[in-house]
Nucleic acid binder design. Sequence first.
DNA 1: GCCAACGTTGGC
DNA 2: GCCAACGTTGGC
Length: 171
Amino acid sequence: MPPAPPPDQRCWLLKSEPNVFGYPDLVRVGCEPWNGVRNYQARNFLREMRAGDLCLFYHSNAQRSGKGQTGVAGVARVVREAYPDNLQFDPASAYHDPKSTPDSPRWSMVDVAPAFAFPAVLPLDTLRTLPEWQDSPLTRKGTRLSVLPVTEAQFRAALAAAGVDLHASHV
DNA sequence: GCCAACGTTGGC
DNA sequence: GCCAACGTTGGC
């Protein structure tokens, strides 16, 4: 028997507006199809996700909606790998894509479930102060990807800054 | 293929 | 509400 391959778990960041769907909503529903992504680069990242991958759950635009601070609210886990986004075929949806067909769906989604919440939202301002996050698209002005890869160092730094003990979290 | 107009994102 | 910085669209 060959040795088991090393786990190639990757880390990601998912943006969501908390007034639309926040981390508490994810906890409430238990599992959520991450649909509505309509950017090719973000879609490609969705397709790279593997079951078990961990995602920082980022609350964007939180101030506007009075839903707390903008920043990372917790960690989600990928529980189902990319499959066709249901909304692209729904004419009533704002995410309907008339150019997409069931034969060759253009857009994908994954299912995510809550892993653990941060004790408090880790503010974007704090994230910006972390050396690991200096070069991230998230902290650079004008980059608006809603799905983006995060390095393991960035992931660990975020958890540390949030006061999360990685070992105690059963990640 | 170029590029101006337009729409969207998202911090502030 | 403002607006910078993108991505997309569509005329040519």
